[in-house]
Computed example of a mutant assay.
Amino acid sequence: MREILAIVKRLLKEKGYPPTIRENATVPGLTSTTVHGYLDRLQRRCFEFCRNDLPR
């Protein structure tokens, strides 16, 4: 989960918007389903990095 958070933070800083599920799934051994689960858990833990007005 730390790897996902690091990717999200890095891409937010670089691009100004959150990465796609596919971009997050670039970590070896992760699938889009796994990434979805990690992102849901991170959001529940108050890491609000997704904006509801963006399709990502």
Results as ranks from 00 to 15, higher is better:
Met1Leu: 14
Met1His: 13
Met1Trp: 03
Arg2His: 05
Arg2Asn: 10
Arg2Gly: 08
Glu3Ser: 14
Glu3Val: 09
Glu3Ile: 08
Ile4Asp: 00
Ile4His: 03
Leu5Gln: 08
Ala6Cys: 07
Ala6Thr: 14
Ile7Tyr: 03
Val8Thr: 01
Lys9Pro: 02
Lys9Cys: 02
Lys9Arg: 12
Arg10Val: 05
Arg10Asn: 12
Arg10Glu: 11
Arg10Asp: 14
Leu11Ala: 02
Leu11Ser: 06
Leu11Trp: 08
Leu11Asp: 05
Leu11Met: 13
Leu11Pro: 01
Leu12Pro: 02
Leu12Met: 15
Leu12His: 10
Leu12Trp: 09
Leu12Cys: 05
Lys13Asp: 10
Lys13His: 11
Glu14Gln: 14
Glu14Gly: 01
Glu14Phe: 05
Glu14Cys: 03
Lys15Thr: 13
Gly16Arg: 15
Gly16Tyr: 15
Gly16Pro: 10
Gly16Met: 11
Gly16His: 14
Gly16Leu: 10
Tyr17Glu: 04
Tyr17Asp: 01
Tyr17Trp: 14
Pro18Asp: 04
Pro18Tyr: 04
Pro18Cys: 06
Pro19Glu: 03
Pro19Cys: 07
Pro19Leu: 07
Pro19Gly: 06
Thr20Ala: 06
Thr20Arg: 11
Thr20Cys: 01
Ile21Thr: 06
Ile21Phe: 08
Ile21Gly: 00
Ile21Arg: 08
Arg22Tyr: 14
Glu23Ala: 09
Glu23Cys: 13
Asn24Pro: 02
Asn24Ile: 09
Ala25Cys: 08
Ala25Glu: 02
Ala25Asn: 08
Ala25Ile: 03
Thr26Ser: 15
Val27Met: 13
Val27Glu: 11
Val27Trp: 11
Val27Gly: 09
Val27Asp: 02
Pro28Tyr: 07
Pro28Leu: 01
Pro28Glu: 08
Pro28Lys: 10
Pro28Ala: 04
Gly29Asp: 05
Gly29His: 08
Gly29Ala: 13
Leu30Asp: 05
Leu30His: 14
Leu30Cys: 13
Thr31Glu: 02
Thr31Asp: 05
Ser32Cys: 11
Ser32Asn: 09
Thr33Phe: 09
Thr33Leu: 04
Thr34Glu: 06
Val35Asn: 02
Val35Cys: 07
His36Tyr: 13
Gly37Trp: 11
Gly37Lys: 10
Gly37Glu: 03
Gly37Pro: 01
Gly37Ile: 00
Tyr38Val: 05
Tyr38Leu: 13
Tyr38Gln: 03
Leu39Gln: 03
Leu39Gly: 00
Leu39Thr: 01
Asp40Lys: 14
Asp40Tyr: 07
Asp40Glu: 10
Arg41Tyr: 08
Arg41Leu: 07
Leu42Ser: 05
Leu42Asp: 04
Gln43His: 09
Gln43Ala: 07
Gln43Arg: 13
Arg44Met: 02
Arg45Val: 04
Arg45Gly: 06
Cys46Lys: 07
Cys46Arg: 02
Cys46Ile: 00
Cys46Tyr: 12
Cys46Pro: 00
Cys46Gly: 00
Phe47Thr: 00
Phe47Tyr: 14
Phe47Arg: 02
Phe47Lys: 02
Phe47His: 11
Phe47Ala: 05
Glu48Asp: 13
Glu48Arg: 01
Phe49Ser: 00
Phe49Thr: 01
Cys50Ser: 03
Arg51Tyr: 12
Arg51Phe: 10
Arg51Met: 12
Arg51Thr: 11
Asn52Arg: 13
Asp53Thr: 15
Leu54Ser: 04
Leu54Met: 12
Leu54Ile: 06
Pro55Phe: 07
Pro55His: 13
Pro55Gly: 07
Arg56Ile: 14
Arg56Gly: 06
Arg56Thr: 08
Arg56Met: 09
Arg56Ala: 12
